[in-house]
């Protein structure tokens, strides 16, 4: 059986990749994708942890370890909503600035 730590390390790597993508990419859409990557990395953790707690039941019976898997759906829903709104905003930016290069979106500063 694959140990929990592997999942967690993978999740951490994915999350870091998301962060790096945000930092290094210039296209707004790509950056947005990086954020999605970060969220999905988190989802991976959730699932991994849910599985872990499923096999290691806790004393407090009111805790429902399966909830971890449910959370993933919530996160996905939220991510979808974010995507909808985000893309709308990106379009608005494109309309006013006619570019998707994030480095050129710097009217407001100092």
């Amino acid at each position: 059986m694959v140990p929990l730590s592997w999942y967690l390390i993978l999740s951490g790597i994915l999350f870091s990749l998301g962060v790096l993508g945000f930092l290094l990419k210039r296209n707004i859409i790509t950056i947005f994708m990086s954020i999605e990557l970060m969220l999905n990395a988190v989802n991976l953790s959730f699932v991994a942890f849910a599985n872990y707690w499923h096999t290691h039941p806790v004393a407090d019976k009111s805790i429902v370890p399966l909830s971890g898997q449910v959370f993933v759906f919530f996160v996905m829903v939220v991510a979808a909503a974010e995507a909808a709104v985000g893309l709308a905003i990106i379009i608005a930016v494109f309309r006013t600035r006619e570019t998707l290069n994030v480095d050129r979106v710097n009217l407001l500063k100092l």
Partner: peptide
């Protein structure tokens, strides 16, 4: 101090990160 505020999103994200 306000030079920190370059206006660039990526640099902002770098600060957060």
């Amino acid at each position: 101090l306000r030079q920190m505020q370059s206006g660039n999103i990526r640099s902002y994200a770098a600060w957060v990160a």
